Amino acid sequence: MNDPVWPEGYGRRMLAQVDSTNAEAMRQAGGLSGPTWIFAARQLSGRGRRGRAWRDPAGNFAASLVLRPAEPPGQAALRSFAASLALHDALSALVPGAELALKWPNDVLLSGGKLAGILLEGSSAGGRMMHLVIGIGVNLTGVPEPGEAGALPAVSLLSETGARIAPEVLLDHLAACYAAREAEFQAEGFAPIRAAWLARAARLGQEVTARTMRGETSGRFETVDAGGNLVLSTADGRRAIPAADVYF
């Protein structure tokens, strides 16, 4: 396939090594004039949701996108769906036929295992976002140590498909795909992003368990609503869950 054109208006900073691309993105955010990708060939102290460590064997992908959203924080955070869609778009183009799916709120699955994770961080003031950082980690060649009990097993693109994709190549494709999804988000809002995400959702219509710090809720995965909440049909009725870890 043809190499993608780097999207106009997006910067990129290529680093050999960093503690965390998200941490570096937050450090650099104040000095950036526009949306910028922070890429690292090696990430030594990556982070996942709820402060979990994200392990990055050599050859895997680690990058963060710094944005200055115009929307209030809740609306700006819906870009997690745009980011996972863009990653799905990029991987589908690079490895046609790969069995990819999206897991709420922000994981990308391959053949039923966890291939990639996305972490949003940011700063706000007066109800407005100052910066939004979208961190993306992809197991291109290696997988981390087994995670907590009940979590999906980690898989790599190489082990599941035999495809060896250089991290820099994925960055070029991902940047182009994200720019297209961002343009769609700005022009049409969350609705088309939501519809496209649901069309690729893992376990839609099936039983899942959403676990929070306060407990867990099980039910049929009905949809994702206009606010990005997970909607479950439970024995006690319909429940909208704003934040949780989902287990199959």
Results as ranks from 00 to 15, higher is better:
residue 151 A to Y: 00
residue 6 W to L: 12
residue 207 E to L: 14
residue 113 G to Y: 07
residue 136 I to F: 01
residue 32 L to F: 08
residue 108 V to F: 06
residue 166 A to M: 12
residue 1 M to K: 11
residue 181 R to D: 01
residue 174 L to V: 05
residue 182 E to C: 07
residue 115 L to T: 10
residue 128 R to G: 10
residue 74 G to F: 13
residue 53 A to T: 01
residue 56 D to H: 12
residue 237 G to E: 10
residue 226 A to M: 10
residue 173 H to C: 13
residue 126 G to M: 12
residue 142 G to W: 03
residue 7 P to Q: 04
residue 170 L to Q: 05
residue 194 R to L: 11
residue 132 L to A: 11
residue 158 L to H: 06
residue 103 K to V: 00
residue 204 L to M: 14
residue 70 A to G: 15
residue 70 A to S: 14
residue 139 N to P: 06
residue 149 A to V: 14
residue 154 A to C: 10
residue 7 P to D: 04
residue 15 L to F: 12
residue 195 A to R: 04
residue 76 A to H: 11
residue 234 T to V: 06
residue 221 F to R: 02
residue 214 R to N: 15
residue 152 L to F: 12
residue 102 L to R: 07
residue 239 R to Y: 07
residue 130 M to S: 14
residue 143 V to D: 07
residue 218 S to Y: 11
residue 189 G to L: 01
residue 196 A to P: 01
residue 138 V to L: 10
residue 128 R to C: 10
residue 221 F to I: 08
residue 72 P to R: 15
residue 52 R to V: 03
residue 197 W to E: 06
residue 52 R to S: 08
residue 152 L to N: 04
residue 100 L to P: 02
residue 112 G to C: 12
residue 123 S to R: 15
residue 108 V to D: 01
residue 104 W to D: 00
residue 65 L to S: 10
residue 213 M to S: 15
residue 22 N to S: 10
residue 130 M to T: 15
residue 102 L to N: 03
residue 17 Q to Y: 00
residue 24 E to L: 02
residue 113 G to Q: 11
residue 217 T to A: 08
residue 188 E to L: 04
residue 12 R to T: 01
residue 151 A to W: 00
residue 215 G to L: 13
residue 204 L to R: 14
residue 234 T to Y: 08
residue 127 G to D: 10
residue 200 R to M: 13
residue 161 T to L: 04
residue 221 F to A: 06
residue 190 F to W: 06
residue 151 A to Q: 09
residue 158 L to K: 06
residue 124 S to A: 15
residue 136 I to N: 00
residue 96 P to S: 07
residue 210 A to I: 07
residue 115 L to K: 05
residue 16 A to E: 12
residue 18 V to H: 03
residue 159 S to D: 09
residue 203 R to F: 13
residue 11 G to E: 02
residue 133 V to L: 07
residue 223 T to C: 03
residue 65 L to T: 09
residue 63 A to V: 05
residue 119 L to F: 03
residue 46 G to F: 01
residue 43 Q to C: 01
residue 135 G to C: 10
residue 100 L to F: 03
residue 142 G to F: 00
residue 58 A to I: 09
